[in-house]
């Protein structure tokens, strides 16, 4: 499998480390039901077939965190984004909402 890093270009997956589902948000440790929320966040991951947004770290390259959209049954990669850009866009949308 090869990933097109937006900084480095196309590289083999041996240069990257995989973290997991990029759609989850870390629960608030001070929030109500935090223990249950963290158990769910850490252990109860889905294992979907098909399109999946997931974190990859370009450890042996530019050291960027990436969000890769990959089909888990075909390994087709349809999108690669810098995780920091996605996070910045999410922060901006929170601010827009109020």
């Amino acid at each position: 499998m090869r990933i097109i890093c937006p900084y480095c270009g196309e590289r083999g997956n041996e240069e990257f480390s995989y973290l997991g589902d990029a759609s989850l948000l870390r629960p608030d440790p001070a929030g109500a039901g935090a223990m249950h929320a963290f158990a769910d966040y850490v252990y109860l991951r889905d294992n979907p077939r098909g399109s999946h947004r997931e974190f990859w770290y370009h450890a042996a390259g530019c050291r960027s965190w990436l969000i890769v959209t990959r089909n888990t049954s075909t390994h087709d990669i349809t999108r690669v984004e810098f995780a920091c850009d996605v996070a910045a866009a999410r922060m901006a949308s929170f601010e827009d909402e109020g």
Partner: peptide, 8 residues
Amino acid sequence: TGDVALTV
């Protein structure tokens, strides 16, 4: 010439 790469 001028290209750079970080790799293994």
